[in-house]
Simulated scan of single mutants.
Amino acid sequence: MVESIGQFGPGLKPPSYHELRVPLLEKAKKETDKLKEKQEKAWKQYGCSPMSDGWTNKRGRHLIKFLVNCPEGTFFLSSVDVLSKIQDAKMLAVLFEQQINLIGRENVVQVVTDNGANFKAARGLLCRRIPTLFCTSCAAHCIDLIMEDICKLKELDATITHGRSLTTFVYRHGRLLAAMREKTQGRDIVRAGATRFATAILTLQSLHKNQDVLRKLFGNEEWFNSKLAKTVAGKKVHSFVLSTKFWSTVEDCILASIPLLQVLRVVDGDEKPAMADLCAAMYFAKDKMKLGLEKKKGF
């Protein structure tokens, strides 16, 4: 948007409140309806897969989004606020059946959901009600659950907690953050991933890459003369940043998780269908993890 404004140059008149909420909104709706018509033709021609995605927004409302995937792409169908409802299998099955009826039962090939117990049970109810239906678990969620289990291993859990403590401590204190960015040439150590556990592992990878910078940051005279060095949190962070054992376990976390992150990138992308590559990617990840950890104790 900013780039477009810059290309227009001086004298751009922004739309009024009325233009935004009436003519421009109507125009956007017409364009979306045309896009939906194109999608609906593809649903009838190829068949399609309704998908669900549950999340909680900033206001604490728990929403379930329904999307439809086909060779033409993925289309947002609707969202339902289920905060005040009991999210059991019967309720979820009813919601899915409503969406399937909107799409047309004859057009639906399979339903894709995450792997929560309630969603699994709902898939069972749907298959009994609609015998022609296939139900499939979300591959990205499966891999995320594997990563969650890896992160819970006793050898790795404490390291991930320390990594979060380190990044939180650095980003809460402006001078320390500025000093770190100066040494990393403006690079941040927190890296966002597709999921919460992917973010944790990518951040550990970034910490490992910048460990020399962090050791110098917490080991120089400026740090020891600062007020932060005398705080309980500062002493705790300082102790494991300069610990060889901490960095060794960070490396173990990376070896145990990065191959799965590569699989997650394959299945979480939307450029091409991922199922054809999933099996080979998982075998490759298992071999890579085994090779990286075979000499490590505790794995």
Rank of each mutant, 00 (worst) to 15 (best):
V22C: 05
F240V: 02
G54N: 05
K296D: 01
E3A: 13
H141R: 11
V109S: 10
L293N: 05
L242N: 15
I189P: 00
V108L: 08
S16H: 10
V237F: 13
K85A: 09
A28Y: 13
A192G: 01
A200W: 02
L207G: 02
D270V: 04
K90N: 11
P14L: 15
L20G: 08
T74W: 05
S239F: 06
K13D: 01
A178R: 13
P23A: 06
D33E: 15
S239W: 03
E222T: 12
A285M: 08
T159W: 01
I86Q: 14
L83I: 07
S16L: 09
A178Y: 09
G9H: 13
G219V: 06
R172G: 11
T167N: 01
K286R: 11
H208T: 07
R175I: 05
T195A: 02
K209G: 02
C279M: 07
V68T: 11
R187N: 10
R129M: 06
I189H: 04
A42D: 14
F218G: 00
N107Q: 08
N101E: 15
L77V: 08
A42P: 01
V266N: 00
E106D: 11
T74M: 05
I143C: 00
D114T: 03
C253H: 01
I189S: 00
K27V: 05
N118T: 08
L207D: 01
I143W: 00
K297N: 11
N210I: 01
G219N: 06
M51S: 04
E294D: 13
F197Y: 15
H238Y: 12
E72C: 05
V109G: 04
T168A: 08
K272I: 06
C135N: 12
A229Q: 02
K34L: 09
L291Y: 11
T159F: 02
A28W: 12
A117N: 13
E72I: 14
P23G: 00
A229C: 09
K34N: 10
V94T: 15
I86K: 15
P273G: 03
I103C: 03
T249S: 07
G47R: 03
A42G: 12
K38D: 13
G104I: 10
C135L: 04
E148Q: 13
L145S: 08
H238V: 02
L242W: 07
E37Q: 15
L102C: 12
D287W: 04
L177R: 13
D212Y: 08
L214K: 06
E222N: 10
G116N: 06
L95C: 10
K27L: 09
L77H: 15
R215A: 07
E31L: 12
K290E: 09
V213L: 06
G11N: 04
V80D: 07
N115R: 12
D88V: 06
I103N: 01
E182Y: 09
K29S: 03
A256I: 02
G6M: 14
I254K: 09
G174S: 10
R61W: 12
G104Y: 08
R128A: 11
T159N: 00
N101T: 12
L176V: 07
Q45D: 13
M275H: 15
